[in-house]
Design a protein around this nucleic acid. Structure first.
Lengths: 212, 212
DNA sequence: TAGATTTCCTGTCATATGGCAGGAAAATTC
DNA sequence: GAATTTTCCTGCCATATGACAGGAAATCTA
Protein backbone atom coordinates (compact mmCIF):
# COMPACT_ATOMS: atom_id res chain seq x y z
CA UNK A 1 0.00 0.00 0.00
CA UNK A 2 2.74 2.38 0.98
CA UNK A 3 4.78 1.36 -2.01
CA UNK A 4 1.83 1.79 -4.34
CA UNK A 5 1.12 5.22 -2.96
CA UNK A 6 4.67 6.36 -3.47
CA UNK A 7 4.81 4.88 -6.93
CA UNK A 8 1.64 6.72 -7.83
CA UNK A 9 2.95 9.93 -6.35
CA UNK A 10 6.05 9.68 -8.46
CA UNK A 11 4.10 9.03 -11.65
CA UNK A 12 1.72 11.87 -10.95
CA UNK A 13 4.56 14.24 -10.23
CA UNK A 14 6.44 13.38 -13.36
CA UNK A 15 3.30 13.96 -15.40
CA UNK A 16 2.37 17.29 -13.86
CA UNK A 17 5.11 19.12 -15.68
CA UNK A 18 3.50 22.51 -15.27
CA UNK A 19 2.76 22.21 -11.56
CA UNK A 20 5.15 23.48 -8.88
CA UNK A 21 5.67 19.84 -7.87
CA UNK A 22 7.49 19.24 -11.12
CA UNK A 23 10.28 21.60 -10.14
CA UNK A 24 10.65 20.05 -6.74
CA UNK A 25 10.86 16.59 -8.16
CA UNK A 26 13.57 17.70 -10.56
CA UNK A 27 15.42 19.32 -7.69
CA UNK A 28 15.31 16.19 -5.55
CA UNK A 29 16.10 13.94 -8.45
CA UNK A 30 19.10 16.06 -9.36
CA UNK A 31 20.48 16.16 -5.85
CA UNK A 32 19.62 12.68 -4.61
CA UNK A 33 20.97 11.05 -7.72
CA UNK A 34 22.57 7.66 -7.05
CA UNK A 35 22.24 4.27 -8.75
CA UNK A 36 21.20 2.64 -5.49
CA UNK A 37 18.40 5.09 -4.72
CA UNK A 38 15.13 3.69 -6.08
CA UNK A 39 12.02 5.69 -6.93
CA UNK A 40 10.44 4.52 -3.72
CA UNK A 41 13.51 5.60 -1.78
CA UNK A 42 13.35 9.00 -3.39
CA UNK A 43 9.72 9.39 -2.41
CA UNK A 44 10.53 8.51 1.21
CA UNK A 45 13.36 10.99 1.15
CA UNK A 46 11.26 13.77 -0.36
CA UNK A 47 8.59 13.24 2.28
CA UNK A 48 11.00 14.29 5.01
CA UNK A 49 11.70 17.70 3.48
CA UNK A 50 9.77 20.87 4.22
CA UNK A 51 9.67 23.93 2.03
CA UNK A 52 10.80 27.30 3.34
CA UNK A 53 10.86 30.77 1.83
CA UNK A 54 13.71 33.07 2.76
CA UNK A 55 14.63 36.72 2.25
CA UNK A 56 17.90 38.41 1.49
CA UNK A 57 19.81 38.82 4.73
CA UNK A 58 18.22 35.81 6.48
CA UNK A 59 20.70 33.67 8.38
CA UNK A 60 20.66 29.90 7.86
CA UNK A 61 23.41 29.38 10.42
CA UNK A 62 25.38 31.55 12.81
CA UNK A 63 28.72 31.07 14.50
CA UNK A 64 28.36 29.45 17.91
CA UNK A 65 25.06 27.76 17.11
CA UNK A 66 24.54 24.16 16.13
CA UNK A 67 23.30 23.11 12.71
CA UNK A 68 20.17 20.97 13.08
CA UNK A 69 19.19 20.67 9.44
CA UNK A 70 20.45 21.13 5.94
CA UNK A 71 18.84 22.67 2.87
CA UNK A 72 18.31 21.98 -0.81
CA UNK A 73 18.23 25.25 -2.71
CA UNK A 74 15.42 25.55 -5.19
CA UNK A 75 16.19 29.20 -5.94
CA UNK A 76 18.31 31.99 -4.52
CA UNK A 77 21.94 32.43 -3.53
CA UNK A 78 23.69 31.83 -0.19
CA UNK A 79 27.09 32.80 1.14
CA UNK A 80 29.08 30.91 3.78
CA UNK A 81 31.80 32.74 5.65
CA UNK A 82 34.01 32.65 8.72
CA UNK A 83 35.99 35.20 10.68
CA UNK A 84 39.74 34.69 10.73
CA UNK A 85 41.96 35.48 13.77
CA UNK A 86 42.02 39.15 12.78
CA UNK A 87 38.25 39.26 12.59
CA UNK A 88 38.21 39.54 8.80
CA UNK A 89 35.19 38.19 7.01
CA UNK A 90 36.38 35.33 4.78
CA UNK A 91 33.91 33.87 2.28
CA UNK A 92 34.39 30.14 2.03
CA UNK A 93 31.66 29.29 -0.44
CA UNK A 94 28.53 30.14 -2.37
CA UNK A 95 25.50 27.92 -2.87
CA UNK A 96 23.15 28.46 -5.77
CA UNK A 97 20.01 26.83 -7.11
CA UNK A 98 20.20 23.05 -7.22
CA UNK A 99 22.90 22.81 -4.56
CA UNK A 100 22.97 21.76 -0.92
CA UNK A 101 23.62 24.16 1.91
CA UNK A 102 25.08 22.26 4.84
CA UNK A 103 27.66 22.64 7.56
CA UNK A 104 28.84 19.08 7.88
CA UNK A 105 30.92 19.30 11.07
CA UNK A 106 28.24 20.95 13.10
CA UNK A 107 25.40 18.84 11.77
CA UNK A 108 27.05 15.43 11.99
CA UNK A 109 29.36 15.94 14.92
CA UNK A 110 26.70 17.76 16.92
CA UNK A 111 28.90 20.67 17.84
CA UNK A 112 28.72 24.46 17.57
CA UNK A 113 29.84 25.82 14.22
CA UNK A 114 32.43 28.38 13.18
CA UNK A 115 30.56 29.20 10.00
CA UNK A 116 27.90 31.73 9.11
CA UNK A 117 25.52 31.13 6.25
CA UNK A 118 23.48 34.05 4.98
CA UNK A 119 21.13 34.63 2.05
CA UNK A 120 22.37 37.04 -0.60
CA UNK A 121 18.98 36.99 -2.35
CA UNK A 122 15.42 35.93 -1.65
CA UNK A 123 14.70 32.32 -2.48
CA UNK A 124 13.08 28.98 -1.76
CA UNK A 125 14.67 25.96 -0.10
CA UNK A 126 13.72 22.53 1.22
CA UNK A 127 15.02 21.58 4.62
CA UNK A 128 15.47 18.28 6.38
CA UNK A 129 16.24 17.90 10.07
CA UNK A 130 19.10 15.89 11.51
CA UNK A 131 16.68 13.45 13.14
CA UNK A 132 14.83 12.77 9.91
CA UNK A 133 18.11 12.43 8.07
CA UNK A 134 19.28 9.93 10.67
CA UNK A 135 16.22 7.77 10.18
CA UNK A 136 16.66 7.69 6.43
CA UNK A 137 20.40 7.15 6.71
CA UNK A 138 20.08 4.02 8.81
CA UNK A 139 16.96 2.75 7.04
CA UNK A 140 17.79 3.18 3.36
CA UNK A 141 20.99 1.58 2.11
CA UNK A 142 20.97 3.60 -1.10
CA UNK A 143 20.61 6.80 0.87
CA UNK A 144 23.71 6.21 2.92
CA UNK A 145 25.62 5.22 -0.18
CA UNK A 146 24.54 8.52 -1.66
CA UNK A 147 25.57 10.37 1.49
CA UNK A 148 28.99 8.81 1.50
CA UNK A 149 29.48 9.55 -2.18
CA UNK A 150 28.39 13.13 -1.64
CA UNK A 151 30.85 13.60 1.21
CA UNK A 152 33.60 12.00 -0.86
CA UNK A 153 32.93 14.45 -3.63
CA UNK A 154 32.98 17.40 -1.26
CA UNK A 155 36.28 16.28 0.16
CA UNK A 156 37.68 15.96 -3.35
CA UNK A 157 36.44 19.42 -4.30
CA UNK A 158 37.88 20.88 -1.12
CA UNK A 159 41.28 19.35 -1.80
CA UNK A 160 41.23 20.52 -5.41
CA UNK A 161 40.51 24.03 -4.26
CA UNK A 162 43.42 23.86 -1.83
CA UNK A 163 45.74 22.89 -4.66
CA UNK A 164 44.44 25.64 -6.89
CA UNK A 165 44.87 28.22 -4.17
CA UNK A 166 48.61 27.63 -4.12
CA UNK A 167 49.41 26.65 -7.68
CA UNK A 168 47.28 29.13 -9.61
CA UNK A 169 47.56 32.90 -9.64
CA UNK A 170 44.74 35.08 -8.38
CA UNK A 171 43.92 35.98 -11.99
CA UNK A 172 43.62 32.33 -12.94
CA UNK A 173 41.43 31.62 -9.94
CA UNK A 174 39.17 34.50 -10.86
CA UNK A 175 38.92 33.33 -14.46
CA UNK A 176 38.03 29.88 -13.25
CA UNK A 177 35.26 31.28 -11.08
CA UNK A 178 33.89 33.26 -14.03
CA UNK A 179 33.83 30.02 -15.95
CA UNK A 180 32.42 27.77 -13.23
CA UNK A 181 29.89 30.09 -11.58
CA UNK A 182 29.22 33.09 -13.81
CA UNK A 183 26.08 33.99 -11.87
CA UNK A 184 28.13 34.72 -8.76
CA UNK A 185 30.22 37.35 -10.50
CA UNK A 186 27.13 39.37 -11.25
CA UNK A 187 25.25 38.95 -8.01
CA UNK A 188 27.92 39.19 -5.32
CA UNK A 189 29.82 42.27 -4.05
CA UNK A 190 33.46 42.31 -5.12
CA UNK A 191 34.83 42.09 -1.60
CA UNK A 192 33.11 38.76 -1.01
CA UNK A 193 34.42 37.36 -4.26
CA UNK A 194 37.86 38.64 -3.34
CA UNK A 195 37.92 36.99 0.05
CA UNK A 196 36.65 33.79 -1.55
CA UNK A 197 39.58 33.93 -3.96
CA UNK A 198 41.97 34.61 -1.10
CA UNK A 199 42.90 38.14 -2.13
CA UNK A 200 41.94 41.71 -1.19
CA UNK A 201 39.28 43.67 -3.00
CA UNK A 202 42.05 46.02 -4.14
CA UNK A 203 43.77 43.22 -5.98
CA UNK A 204 40.58 41.87 -7.45
CA UNK A 205 39.73 45.31 -8.70
CA UNK A 206 43.06 45.45 -10.58
CA UNK A 207 42.61 41.96 -11.93
CA UNK A 208 39.20 42.88 -13.28
CA UNK A 209 40.68 45.94 -14.97
CA UNK A 210 43.38 43.88 -16.67
CA UNK A 211 40.99 41.22 -17.91
CA UNK A 212 38.68 43.72 -19.62
CA UNK B 1 28.97 -18.00 20.96
CA UNK B 2 30.33 -15.49 18.56
CA UNK B 3 29.74 -12.70 21.02
CA UNK B 4 31.41 -14.65 23.80
CA UNK B 5 34.41 -15.36 21.67
CA UNK B 6 34.86 -11.72 20.72
CA UNK B 7 34.40 -10.61 24.29
CA UNK B 8 37.07 -13.05 25.39
CA UNK B 9 39.38 -11.95 22.62
CA UNK B 10 39.07 -8.39 23.73
CA UNK B 11 39.78 -9.22 27.36
CA UNK B 12 42.76 -11.34 26.45
CA UNK B 13 44.15 -8.67 24.21
CA UNK B 14 43.82 -5.95 26.75
CA UNK B 15 45.63 -8.13 29.30
CA UNK B 16 48.50 -9.12 27.06
CA UNK B 17 50.13 -5.76 27.33
CA UNK B 18 53.52 -7.02 26.27
CA UNK B 19 52.34 -8.95 23.22
CA UNK B 20 52.24 -7.42 19.76
CA UNK B 21 48.45 -7.70 19.91
CA UNK B 22 48.36 -5.02 22.57
CA UNK B 23 49.69 -2.43 20.17
CA UNK B 24 47.20 -3.41 17.52
CA UNK B 25 44.31 -3.16 19.88
CA UNK B 26 45.41 0.30 20.94
CA UNK B 27 45.74 1.28 17.31
CA UNK B 28 42.24 0.10 16.43
CA UNK B 29 40.76 1.53 19.57
CA UNK B 30 42.34 4.90 18.88
CA UNK B 31 41.18 5.05 15.29
CA UNK B 32 37.76 3.40 15.55
CA UNK B 33 36.78 5.49 18.52
CA UNK B 34 33.10 6.34 18.58
CA UNK B 35 30.43 6.16 21.32
CA UNK B 36 28.25 3.92 19.17
CA UNK B 37 30.95 1.36 18.44
CA UNK B 38 30.73 -1.43 21.01
CA UNK B 39 33.52 -3.82 21.99
CA UNK B 40 31.89 -6.49 19.89
CA UNK B 41 31.68 -4.13 16.95
CA UNK B 42 35.35 -3.31 17.34
CA UNK B 43 36.25 -7.00 17.32
CA UNK B 44 34.25 -7.53 14.12
CA UNK B 45 35.98 -4.56 12.58
CA UNK B 46 39.45 -5.69 13.63
CA UNK B 47 38.83 -9.12 12.13
CA UNK B 48 38.54 -7.60 8.66
CA UNK B 49 42.00 -6.03 8.73
CA UNK B 50 45.19 -7.68 7.56
CA UNK B 51 48.68 -6.71 8.57
CA UNK B 52 51.24 -5.64 5.98
CA UNK B 53 54.89 -4.67 6.18
CA UNK B 54 56.16 -2.00 3.84
CA UNK B 55 59.51 -0.54 2.86
CA UNK B 56 60.61 2.99 2.12
CA UNK B 57 59.68 3.77 -1.47
CA UNK B 58 56.74 1.34 -1.65
CA UNK B 59 53.68 2.79 -3.34
CA UNK B 60 50.29 2.46 -1.64
CA UNK B 61 48.51 4.13 -4.53
CA UNK B 62 49.46 5.46 -7.95
CA UNK B 63 47.83 7.98 -10.23
CA UNK B 64 45.45 6.34 -12.69
CA UNK B 65 44.83 3.28 -10.53
CA UNK B 66 41.82 2.66 -8.32
CA UNK B 67 42.03 2.49 -4.55
CA UNK B 68 40.61 -0.82 -3.33
CA UNK B 69 41.53 -0.60 0.32
CA UNK B 70 42.62 1.78 3.01
CA UNK B 71 45.26 1.47 5.72
CA UNK B 72 45.73 2.08 9.42
CA UNK B 73 49.32 3.03 10.10
CA UNK B 74 50.89 1.24 13.02
CA UNK B 75 54.33 2.66 12.30
CA UNK B 76 56.11 4.55 9.53
CA UNK B 77 55.46 7.67 7.50
CA UNK B 78 53.61 8.14 4.20
CA UNK B 79 53.42 11.02 1.75
CA UNK B 80 50.50 11.79 -0.56
CA UNK B 81 51.11 13.96 -3.59
CA UNK B 82 49.71 15.01 -6.95
CA UNK B 83 51.13 16.55 -10.08
CA UNK B 84 49.82 19.98 -10.98
CA UNK B 85 49.26 21.17 -14.60
CA UNK B 86 52.96 22.02 -14.90
CA UNK B 87 53.94 18.55 -13.75
CA UNK B 88 55.23 19.79 -10.40
CA UNK B 89 55.12 17.38 -7.51
CA UNK B 90 52.77 18.85 -4.87
CA UNK B 91 52.62 17.17 -1.48
CA UNK B 92 49.09 17.25 -0.15
CA UNK B 93 49.55 15.37 3.10
CA UNK B 94 51.55 13.17 5.41
CA UNK B 95 50.28 10.22 7.40
CA UNK B 96 52.07 9.02 10.49
CA UNK B 97 51.60 6.34 13.08
CA UNK B 98 48.03 6.07 14.36
CA UNK B 99 46.51 7.71 11.30
CA UNK B 100 44.52 6.47 8.32
CA UNK B 101 45.86 6.45 4.80
CA UNK B 102 42.97 6.62 2.37
CA UNK B 103 42.03 8.19 -0.92
CA UNK B 104 38.35 8.74 -0.37
CA UNK B 105 37.24 9.70 -3.90
CA UNK B 106 38.83 6.73 -5.54
CA UNK B 107 37.80 4.23 -2.88
CA UNK B 108 34.19 5.28 -2.43
CA UNK B 109 33.37 6.56 -5.87
CA UNK B 110 35.13 3.63 -7.54
CA UNK B 111 37.14 5.75 -9.93
CA UNK B 112 40.80 6.16 -10.86
CA UNK B 113 42.74 8.46 -8.58
CA UNK B 114 44.84 11.55 -9.17
CA UNK B 115 46.88 10.93 -6.06
CA UNK B 116 50.08 9.06 -5.35
CA UNK B 117 50.81 7.68 -1.90
CA UNK B 118 54.35 6.55 -1.16
CA UNK B 119 56.20 5.37 1.94
CA UNK B 120 58.92 7.68 3.23
CA UNK B 121 60.07 5.08 5.76
CA UNK B 122 59.67 1.38 6.44
CA UNK B 123 56.66 0.53 8.53
CA UNK B 124 53.68 -1.63 9.42
CA UNK B 125 50.05 -1.07 8.48
CA UNK B 126 46.69 -2.82 8.66
CA UNK B 127 44.61 -2.83 5.54
CA UNK B 128 40.93 -3.38 4.89
CA UNK B 129 39.41 -3.92 1.46
CA UNK B 130 36.51 -1.96 0.04
CA UNK B 131 34.31 -5.05 0.01
CA UNK B 132 34.96 -5.82 3.67
CA UNK B 133 34.42 -2.20 4.56
CA UNK B 134 31.10 -2.26 2.70
CA UNK B 135 29.90 -5.25 4.68
CA UNK B 136 30.75 -3.60 7.99
CA UNK B 137 29.33 -0.26 6.88
CA UNK B 138 25.90 -1.64 6.09
CA UNK B 139 25.88 -4.13 8.96
CA UNK B 140 27.09 -2.09 11.92
CA UNK B 141 25.24 1.11 12.70
CA UNK B 142 28.01 2.41 14.94
CA UNK B 143 30.55 1.82 12.22
CA UNK B 144 28.76 3.98 9.71
CA UNK B 145 28.25 6.65 12.33
CA UNK B 146 31.98 6.53 12.89
CA UNK B 147 32.64 6.68 9.15
CA UNK B 148 30.43 9.71 8.71
CA UNK B 149 32.01 11.45 11.67
CA UNK B 150 35.46 10.71 10.31
CA UNK B 151 34.59 12.13 6.91
CA UNK B 152 33.05 15.19 8.56
CA UNK B 153 36.23 15.76 10.45
CA UNK B 154 38.35 15.40 7.33
CA UNK B 155 36.19 17.89 5.51
CA UNK B 156 36.54 20.30 8.41
CA UNK B 157 40.31 19.90 8.47
CA UNK B 158 40.50 20.39 4.74
CA UNK B 159 38.50 23.61 4.92
CA UNK B 160 40.57 24.88 7.83
CA UNK B 161 43.70 24.28 5.84
CA UNK B 162 42.28 26.19 2.92
CA UNK B 163 41.62 29.17 5.16
CA UNK B 164 45.08 29.00 6.65
CA UNK B 165 46.66 28.86 3.22
CA UNK B 166 45.28 32.26 2.35
CA UNK B 167 45.15 34.05 5.69
CA UNK B 168 48.46 32.99 7.20
CA UNK B 169 51.95 33.73 5.93
CA UNK B 170 54.27 30.95 4.86
CA UNK B 171 56.26 31.46 8.05
CA UNK B 172 53.16 31.03 10.20
CA UNK B 173 52.15 27.93 8.30
CA UNK B 174 55.60 26.46 8.81
CA UNK B 175 55.53 27.25 12.51
CA UNK B 176 52.14 25.59 12.78
CA UNK B 177 53.50 22.47 11.11
CA UNK B 178 56.43 22.39 13.53
CA UNK B 179 53.92 22.57 16.32
CA UNK B 180 51.39 20.07 14.97
CA UNK B 181 53.67 17.47 13.42
CA UNK B 182 57.25 17.93 14.65
CA UNK B 183 58.25 14.47 13.46
CA UNK B 184 57.65 15.46 9.86
CA UNK B 185 60.12 18.32 9.99
CA UNK B 186 62.89 15.92 10.87
CA UNK B 187 62.05 13.03 8.58
CA UNK B 188 60.95 14.69 5.34
CA UNK B 189 63.09 16.43 2.67
CA UNK B 190 62.63 20.20 2.65
CA UNK B 191 61.18 20.30 -0.85
CA UNK B 192 58.27 18.10 0.16
CA UNK B 193 57.53 20.20 3.20
CA UNK B 194 57.75 23.30 1.00
CA UNK B 195 55.25 22.05 -1.55
CA UNK B 196 52.97 20.97 1.29
CA UNK B 197 53.11 24.53 2.63
CA UNK B 198 52.47 25.92 -0.83
CA UNK B 199 55.86 27.56 -1.29
CA UNK B 200 59.16 26.79 -3.04
CA UNK B 201 62.07 25.14 -1.32
CA UNK B 202 63.98 28.38 -1.79
CA UNK B 203 61.47 30.26 0.31
CA UNK B 204 61.30 27.59 2.96
CA UNK B 205 65.04 27.63 3.20
CA UNK B 206 64.96 31.36 3.95
CA UNK B 207 62.13 30.96 6.43
CA UNK B 208 64.10 28.32 8.28
CA UNK B 209 67.09 30.64 8.42
CA UNK B 210 65.04 33.47 9.90
CA UNK B 211 63.43 31.30 12.54
CA UNK B 212 66.73 30.02 13.91
C1' DT C 1 87.95 6.06 -0.44
C1' DA C 2 86.64 8.67 -4.56
C1' DG C 3 83.25 10.08 -7.57
C1' DA C 4 78.52 11.03 -8.42
C1' DT C 5 74.27 12.54 -6.95
C1' DT C 6 71.15 14.72 -4.08
C1' DT C 7 69.97 18.09 -0.76
C1' DC C 8 70.06 22.46 0.95
C1' DC C 9 71.44 27.27 1.22
C1' DT C 10 72.05 31.97 -0.59
C1' DG C 11 72.59 35.95 -3.86
C1' DT C 12 70.33 38.80 -7.34
C1' DC C 13 66.52 40.41 -9.57
C1' DA C 14 61.52 40.33 -11.01
C1' DT C 15 56.74 40.39 -9.81
C1' DA C 16 52.35 39.65 -7.60
C1' DT C 17 49.92 41.13 -3.92
C1' DG C 18 48.94 43.88 0.35
C1' DG C 19 48.27 48.28 2.99
C1' DC C 20 46.70 52.63 2.94
C1' DA C 21 44.48 56.67 1.37
C1' DG C 22 41.74 59.40 -1.61
C1' DG C 23 38.01 59.97 -4.72
C1' DA C 24 34.28 58.77 -8.10
C1' DA C 25 30.12 56.31 -8.67
C1' DA C 26 26.23 53.90 -7.06
C1' DA C 27 22.93 52.66 -3.72
C1' DT C 28 20.36 53.64 0.24
C1' DT C 29 17.95 56.43 3.45
C1' DC C 30 15.29 60.06 5.15
C1' DG D 1 15.91 65.01 -4.17
C1' DA D 2 19.60 65.81 -0.89
C1' DA D 3 22.46 63.64 2.34
C1' DT D 4 24.65 59.63 3.79
C1' DT D 5 26.59 55.34 3.22
C1' DT D 6 28.44 51.78 0.60
C1' DT D 7 30.92 50.06 -3.25
C1' DC D 8 34.50 50.13 -6.28
C1' DC D 9 38.62 51.92 -8.50
C1' DT D 10 43.40 53.67 -8.59
C1' DG D 11 48.01 55.56 -7.20
C1' DC D 12 52.02 54.98 -4.31
C1' DC D 13 55.05 52.32 -1.84
C1' DA D 14 56.41 48.09 0.93
C1' DT D 15 57.16 43.27 1.12
C1' DA D 16 56.75 38.36 0.56
C1' DT D 17 57.65 35.06 -2.57
C1' DG D 18 59.24 33.11 -7.07
C1' DA D 19 62.78 32.12 -10.75
C1' DC D 20 67.22 31.09 -11.65
C1' DA D 21 71.95 30.07 -10.87
C1' DG D 22 75.90 28.78 -8.32
C1' DG D 23 78.08 26.46 -4.63
C1' DA D 24 78.64 23.96 -0.10
C1' DA D 25 77.41 19.96 2.39
C1' DA D 26 75.57 15.57 2.91
C1' DT D 27 74.44 11.20 1.13
C1' DC D 28 74.74 7.45 -1.80
C1' DT D 29 77.29 4.22 -4.71
C1' DA D 30 80.78 1.59 -6.71
Amino acid sequence: MEVFFYGLTKQLISLLSTSPFKMNFDLFQTIYCHPKITSDDLSSIMDEHQIINFKKGDYFLEKGKQANEYYLLESGLLRAYVHDFNGNDITIGFQSEGEISIEVSSLFQRMPTEENIVALTDGVAWKISFEDFQKLFHKIEGFREWGRAWMSEQLFISKQRQIEMVTKSATERYEKLINDKPNIIQQVPVRHIASYLGITDTSLSRIRKNIV
